[in-house]
Amino acid sequence: MKIHIPTPLRVYSNKQDTVSVSATTVGEALDALTATHPDLKKHLYSEEGKLRSFVNVYLNDEDIRYLPKKGATEVSDKDALSIIPSIAGGC
């Protein structure tokens, strides 16, 4: 499956905007991504190993935090994961 990398993190993915991994679940896909590009890990996860609060991961158009099976959700080669840091602010 494909994992889309946002612009700020491409410096840790050999400048690739999309990384292809072999995986059967969301969790496996993310593990495969950080195994291939270990520098991504600290930008995606807190020291406790949880996704950083401002990092969103979408399986197609669904936030993986709200998927019933979360990281154990099955995926196929046709699916895509998108990593999207949040964007907010105000005066």
Partner: peptide
């Protein structure tokens, strides 16, 4: 004003953007 605020900074995560 057209200046970043503390909230803008705290919520900014897209490095290089």
């Amino acid at each position: 004003p057209a200046q970043w605020s503390k909230t803008d900074f705290a919520e900014a995560h897209w490095l290089g953007c």
